[in-house]
């Protein structure tokens, strides 16, 4: 890529920093240039976020309809998968799956719930009282 072809499209990094790219100067030698974003990347990132929002919304509805516990929703909201949530809480994946059932969730001790609350960086009350 030539230095003059370096894209300068508005993106998530614009106004925060410009990223370094290795590009060719007019003599065909490598040099660095700064880019404030590339539209192709921006739309890939936007797409990923649309997908995340959609999944959180579905999770919220599942909690509202009494199909899932709040843990299911906050896991999506905080972009976590089972590995990450398991690593923050110390619970096994199948235990977490069980905790996602509303009936099981109701019977969980505050001690166990606090582990989730701190993993999600919310208060215990917020977690307990989330109704969707």
């Amino acid at each position: 890529m030539k230095k003059e072809d370096l894209p300068q499209d508005d993106s998530a990094i614009t106004n925060i920093f410009r990223e370094v790219m290795y590009v060719k100067d007019e003599k065909g030698k490598y040099t660095t240039g700064l880019s404030k974003g590339w539209e192709v990347k921006k739309s890939a990132l936007d797409n990923a976020w649309d997908d995340i929002k959609e999944r959180s919304e579905e999770a919220r509805l599942a909690v509202k309809n009494g199909e899932k516990s709040p843990i299911f929703y906050f896991k999506e909201l905080k972009l976590m998968d089972f590995t990450i949530l398991s690593s923050y809480t110390g619970f096994w994946k199948f235990t977490i799956k069980r905790h996602m059932k509303p009936s099981v969730f109701k019977s969980l001790s505050d001690k166990k719930l606090s582990k989730y609350a701190s993993a999600f960086e919310i208060s215990l009350n917020e977690l307990k009282n989330f109704k969707g």
Partner: peptide
């Protein structure tokens, strides 16, 4: 989209790494 994100994300992956290697 996921491929493109990992490939062209800040400083990683596809095009960027090839230019870096060429340099």
């Amino acid at each position: 989209g996921q491929i493109v994100r990992m490939q062209e994300e800040i400083g990683t992956g596809g095009g960027g790494f090839r230019f870096l290697y060429a340099a």
